[in-house]
Each structure stands twice: as C-alpha cells, then as structure tokens.
Design a protein around this nucleic acid. Structure first.
Ligand SMILES: [Mn+2]
Ligand SMILES: [Mn+2]
Ligand SMILES: [Mn+2]
Ligand SMILES: [Mn+2]
Lengths: 221, 221
DNA sequence: CTAAAAATTTAGACTTGTCTAAATTTTTAT
DNA sequence: ATAAAAATTTAGACAAGTCTAAATTTTTAG
C-alpha cells in the first residue's frame, strides 16, 4: 500500500518517462512535483526499496513493471473521475483536474470498476486522454499535433497536451471543442501560426504555441 | 484549512458530544480514533489553538461554533457520498462507510453542492441518518428506538444506530429494510427481545441488542 | 584531458502525527 | 478526609516527507 505522496511520484515518473527518452532525472521530478532535488532523492530511495523503480545513484530512474502498473492504475482513476465530474456533475473540462488529483487516491478496486460501468466504460477523458485498462495497459492513439498537419487535410480535434485552465478556456473562446473537424488553410512560415477552417463554422487563427498542444486524428480514409 | 486528521477529530468530537451529556473526554476520543490518550492531548491543543474547540486541561472538550460548522460539513460530505455509492453505483448499504471515510475529505464546496443536486437533494443517507444542510445545520428527527416501542403500535423502520457491516448484513438476512412497517407483537421481559410482524411479510424475532440499534417513527396519525 | 558548471546525493534539521513511560490531576472508595 | 485508582498531560522519541547547505559525482567546454 502506497501513500498519496508515493502515488504522486509514480504518476509523475510515468509522465516524464513518456515524454523524453530514457531515464527520468532527479531535477525533472523536483520541478514537476514542486519540491527540491534532495527531497526527490529521499523518495527515490524509498521507491527503489519497494521495487517500484529501477534506481542507480546519479543515473536517473525508471519504473519497474509493478511501478508502471500502479502508475497506470492511478491515471485510470484520475481520468475516470474527470469523466464523472464533467459528464455527471456538469463541470467544465477546465475545472476538473484539481479535484481528480484528490479523487485518484481513493483506494477501492471495486469503486473504480463500478464507476467505470456507471460512466459507460468511456475510452477517453474530457481532455481526450485515453483511459488505461483495468489490467494496466495504456491504449495507444495515433494522434499528431495540429502544428504538423499540412494545408488542406481535414482533421478532427481529439485531445490536448496542455491541461491548464487558461489554455482550456482559451480553446473554448476560440470555439475549439474536442471532436470538431478543422482544415488548415494557411501556415505562416514566420511564426508557424495557422489559419484553420472550423467545418460548418468560422475561421480561426491559431498560434504555434496553441497548435503544438492540440492533438488531431485523420478522419477515416 | 484542516488536515484529514484534524477533520477526523472534529467529526469524532461531534459524534461523542451528541451521544453523551457535556464534555468529551480524552480517553473516549482515544478509543474512537484508535490512538492513545497522549496523542489525543497533542491534537486537542492544536485544535484549541485554531479555535475549533473549547479545551481546558483535564476538563474535557467541546466544539466551538466554527468547529461544529466544520464537523457538520464533513458529515454532510460523508453522507452524500454514501448516497452516491448506493443509489448510483449500486453498492449495498453495508459496503459504503469505509469509502465515504475517504471521500468525505475531498475538498471542494462546488463538488459537494453539485453532487447534492445530482443526487436529487436527498434528506437521508442509506442508513437513515439525516444529511446536514449546506449551511451546517443538522436536521432533527423524532425517532425512537424499536426497543422502546409498545406492543401493537405500527411503526416504520427509519434508521440504524450501529453501522458495522455485520449488523447491517444481519438486518438484510432478517428482511429488515429501511422504510418497512413493523408491529411489535410480544416483548419478552426476561431478555427484552421482541417479536415483530413485518407488515405484508413474515414475523421476525429481534434481540434487544438489535432492537436498541433500530430507529423507528410513528407513521402519520 | 582537465577544470568549471551542473546535477545529484548526503548531512542535519523541521513539522505532523504518533508512541511509551513518567508525572500530574481528578475521581472514587473506604 | 484521604489513599488508591483512573484519567490526563508532559517528556522524550520516532517515521514520513520536506528543507537548506555542504559534499560528491557527472557532464560540458575549452
Ligand atoms: Mn487531469
Ligand atoms: Mn484529463
Ligand atoms: Mn458512514
Ligand atoms: Mn451512513
């Protein structure tokens, strides 16, 4: 049984490992968890003792199989609670992350599985992130960033890489919602901003900063 | 902002104060929280510093107005989550207490109020306990114990005083569900056990140990 | 290759909530 | 009324998780 803190470290290691190559560094963890490197080192020793991470001093860290299984379980809980908060309680997608940060630590296998059933076995959370399976597998999605899409290709908005309230509210104000279809009309080489056609709606200007945080999917075909 | 531990102490003080007269003792708190008296003393000093309790050394403890408001807020959350677990997720009434012990500490005013709305503003939890108002008022119920009901009076089963899994499952096995109407047919003076007629069903034998933990209401009239 | 910079770990300390053992206060019983 | 018992508090300690400052190791640059 892990503490809240240990669970948060596991989850953070998982995220960092999946957005760089190779081992996760002490400093990266310190920044992400808003603590100091010395504190991270202490925790890494503890997680290594519990066989949840592979850890060699000065060499960075990697989850063990068991550690990854636990991390995915926590992410599953987080994302299911986010679906609950949006679908059932009517929160907006920019309001739910902090509450899910607490709810994800509620410990009961049966609670999570009943919640999953109650929600209709959703595949994605309100931000388009895939929900890991009960067995601890992360579904793979073949999404690419909107910033990499070529002119003329109709694509569907499937997810976001940035989860801050500010970013999500900015998307709302731009009428960009998950599932909507867009066509890139123009890419400015100077600042890499793009002009997109919201199918059945208006045209929207999207900065590179925003475009590189939007995930899209080619519609079938 | 209080820690989980502080919240649990406040809740426990509230419960103990409402089932005895006057001040709550250090030992009673130690037993209820499964800690030692010395630990309780330390916490009482902290809660007194925060003005959540009235505390004089050796003289027992009493909630301040603010302390009571917080205690009732926590009890409100606990009971609403229990309703959610039973009504929405389909748990049995004997399965939900432990999960609610964790869920009650999730901090978000808006979450609780949206949950309340989602559940249809329930007045009672799955054990018949009244749900405190958002403003922190505990509704009063004029229930009496089944052990005090006289022969011949039809009464309705409204709540339980004991919440253990064993007790609740025992009631299930006896076909005693909240809301059912019963008539006491016989009271054995020797052991105070009672024989009751389950209206529209069979006759059930109820020991004093069980009867004194069942709360009933006179049906209108 | 080697010295400076950067990253990481170690040492020692603090906070929260807990404990045991000892001291103190209150209650109970003769 | 007073001694014994019971309840409570104090003293000193510990584990978890954090911090700052100092020491160590690795990386980077010249
Ligand atoms: Mn989130
Ligand atoms: Mn999410
Ligand atoms: Mn309960
Ligand atoms: Mn209850």
């Amino acid at each position: 049984m892990q503490s809240f803190t240990e669970e948060n470290y596991l989850k953070t290691i998982y995220y960092l490992a999946n957005r760089q190559q190779g081992e996760v560094s002490t400093n990266a963890l310190a920044e992400m968890t808003a603590t100091k490197a010395a504190s991270v080192t202490d925790m890494l020793r503890k997680l290594a003792d519990k066989q949840l991470i592979h850890y060699k001093k000065y060499q960075g860290v990697r989850l063990t199989e068991e550690g990854e299984r636990l991390a995915l379980q926590i992410i599953r809980r987080h994302r299911l609670w986010e679906v609950f908060l949006v679908d059932k309680l009517g929160f907006r997608w920019d309001q739910v992350h902090e509450m899910a940060e607490e709810l994800e630590h509620i410990r009961s296998e049966e609670l999570v599985e009943r919640l999953d059933t109650f929600l209709g076995h959703p595949q994605f959370d309100p931000h388009g992130d895939p929900i890991p399976t009960p067995a601890g597998q992360m579904p793979v999605t073949g999404y690419q960033k909107l910033s990499e899409v070529v002119v003329g290709e109709p694509v569907q908005l499937m997810g976001v890489l940035e989860h801050s309230t500010e970013f999500l509210q900015h998307l709302d104000r731009s009428n960009l919602t998950l599932g909507c279809t867009v066509v890139v009309q123009e890419v400015n080489t100077f600042d890499r901003s793009v002009l997109v056609q919201l199918v059945g709606d208006r045209t929207v200007f999207i900065s590179y900063e925003v475009a590189k945080n939007l995930l899209v999917n080619q519609p079938a075909g």
